[in-house]
Amino acid sequence: MALSLYNYWIVIVLMMTGFYIVIRSTNLVKKIVGLNIFQTSVFILYISMGKVEGGTAPIVTDGATAYSNPLPHVLILTAIVVGVATTALGLTLVVRIKEAYGSVDEEAIQRQDREA
C-alpha cells in the first residue's frame, strides 16, 4: 500500500533534500541548485496527481478509453518556465555578487559587509 504511492514518497524526499540544501548551504550557487530540486519535487507532485489509473497520454486515439488529466501537465509547463526564469535571475545575481565581492560564499560576503 505504502509502496503503491511511491512517487509521492519521492516527492517528499526530493522536497526535503532541496529545502535542506537551501537552508544549510552557504554557497550561493548550491543554494540555487537546492531551490531547483525543491521546485522539481513540486513538478512531480503535480504530474503524479494528473495520472489516471489505466489512462494513456491525453491524445485522442482509437482504442483508448481513459486519458490522463492534461491540465496539471500544462500548469507544470508554466511552472517550469517560472523556475527557469528564477534560476536564470538567481545565477545572474550570483555572477554580479562574485564580481562585487570576489566570492560566492555567504559567510565570506557577510564578513566583508561587517568590515566595510
Binding site: 529545502f19 537551501v22 550561493l28 543554494k31 531551490l35 525543491f38 521546485q39 513540486v42 507532485l45 503535480y46 496527481m49 496539471p72 511552472a79 528564477t86 535571475l89 538567481g90 545575481l93 550570483v94 554580479r96 555578487i97 562585487a100 565581492y101 560576503i109 559587509d113
Partner: peptide, 26 residues
C-alpha cells in the same frame, strides 16, 4: 553592492514562499 545580496536573499525566500503557495494550490 549589498543590494545584490539583499535581492538574492529575497529571491530565495520569495521563491520558497511562492513554491509553498504552488504546493497548496496543487
Amino acid at each position: 553592492r549589498r543590494a545584490l545580496t539583499a535581492s538574492y536573499q529575497y529571491l530565495i525566500m520569495g521563491t520558497l514562499g511562492a513554491t509553498f503557495i504552488l504546493i497548496g494550490v496543487g
